[in-house]
Design a protein around this nucleic acid. Sequence first.
DNA 1: ACTATTCGCG
Length: 270
Amino acid sequence: MVKVVSLGVEGRLGNLDQIAAIHTNIIKNGQEQDHFVVFELLRACSRFDAIDYAMEVFRRTRQPNVYVYTAIIDALVACGSSYHAISSYVHMIENSVCPDNFVVNSVLKACALELDLRVEFDDMQKVFDEMPQRDIVATTVMISSYSEHGLVDRALAVFDLPKVRDTVCWTAMIDGLVRNGEMSKSLECFRQMQREGVRANEVTAVCMLSACAYLGALELGKWVHSYIEKYAIKVNHFVASALVTMYLRCGSIREAERAFEEAKKKDVST
DNA sequence: ACTATTCGCG
């Protein structure tokens, strides 16, 4: 355990050195103001938790465009500095950089994070409402953050807005219902998803299987299992353990063992 | 060019 931690730190420092080396090269090549290059550099910093370095790179950028702002906001969100992420967005607007849906979605995430500290949802809803055109990703962010805070009705209200909803959006809603104990509503939601012809993925399957486990709905659980096989949904360890748990809760020890063996055979990864 | 969804296990 101790070894893993120290390896992690060493690896991180090594990578930070690499980033610094890359940065030096960028400066040498006169690409320090190249938005595309800065964007990639900021993302690299974020991947290695080098937020201070990212801030320094950002500060050196004279006229950041919307991509550069998105990268720094994402980096701030990733390290939990939702307040600074929101400030950066305000800064962007003040500098007359036109926002796109991507950066607004990043701010939505920051707002959602901020809600863990305060209890005011209106700012988030306002950002969402004032988007130039709402997209499905923003809707999904709203659904999952409302659900996370137990506000299922508000999640459902947002879910009702778009004309077309994709797999991820449906899954976020189903997950929200499951996590808030609205099991039968989650089943109904899944059925509606099927009716509208939206394909489920491995995340949807996990949510459904946990609802089935909770309700002891063996038949539906089996149906989901066959759906997984029919559409070759990848059985990662989430799906594998959800299958086993579902069969166990439904009292089908034999099926649980079979699912377990099946997963072992397939060498379940990630 | 960038954004969204899953309970982890010794």
